[in-house]
Design a protein around this nucleic acid. Structure first.
Lengths: 148, 148
DNA sequence: TTTTATGCAAAGTATTTGCACGGGA
DNA sequence: TCCCGTGCAAATACTTTGCATAAAA
């Protein structure tokens, strides 16, 4: 069993532990998202899954993604081109790095002194009590850089 | 003339300089957005403007906001609750700090060594060439903290 | 006068909901 | 068996487009 499918299994177990059932269609959505290095929209997930489950409905994708998000297993990705896509949730204090050419998503560790001190500084200057932050980087991945 | 309305005038001048006309309805949208400390959705802008221009259509708001965004005068704000709202564009390397209670938006300067070194580090580790970053903080503003 | 902007209505997308049937546990 | 999950269709929300009229320059 490779690392990819173990993530899918873990998500399915998590769903079941929360009273949700492991159905075939749900399994397809979970595997698609768990194995993807790209953020996928409900429609994209639907099209990928439909190659295996002809009868699958787009609604099922929406409902499954909703549950995965609720359990913190996937997260919505915000991009200039739109905010409908989802990807595996970052673990801990990680953030996203997105390739503008191929869409590949990489996680990086954002829990560091630099961020901490910036937030402390902003907190003092603004009077806000800072509770959370969104940090996302955009660029070109190594592959796409080479192809130029 | 206060600072608020001068921003609205500046935007109108900018629109005219780019071949767009300064109409009454457009003026209303511009003033609403230029004077707001909160991110507003097209529908919210529409409802505010309609108190003065009964005949105004929601479409006009969409079309005006589109032009303001195109000229870099306003920017879209992404939030957990949705991504339809707009606010004055940040000037230079500034980022948003949003109050989770009242929605007030404050800008802070994000152009600093901390961010630079973080991006350099991530670039080395990931192999990505980083082109832009998106940072946003969420918290409680001074007013909302006091009211607890 | 000339050209852009407007409102209305209609058309497109994206997403959610109601419901009877089907399939997991 | 029991109850959740499913697909379908319809409803809702958000945004864009076509067009005849109104208004800015």
């Amino acid at each position: 069993m490779n690392q990819k499918s173990s993530k899918a299994h873990e998500w399915l177990r998590n769903l079941q532990a929360n009273g949700y059932r492991a159905t075939n269609t749900r399994r397809a959505v979970v595997e698609t998202l768990a194995n993807s290095q790209h953020a996928l929209s409900p429609l994209e997930i639907y099209e990928i899954c439909r190659s295996q489950h002809k009868r699958m409905g787009l609604v099922t994708v929406y409902r499954t993604v909703e549950k995965l998000e609720e359990l913190g297993l996937v997260q919505r990705v915000h991009q200039p081109s739109g905010c409908q896509a989802f990807i595996s949730a970052a673990e801990g204090h990680q953030h996203l790095l997105i390739c503008q050419s191929c869409g590949k998503v990489t996680f990086f560790n954002g829990e560091n002194e630099a961020m901490e001190s910036l937030m402390k500084k902003v907190s003092l200057q603004s009077g806000y009590q800072i509770e959370s932050h969104w940090l996302q980087l955009f660029g070109q991945c190594a592959n796409c850089r080479d192809q130029t």
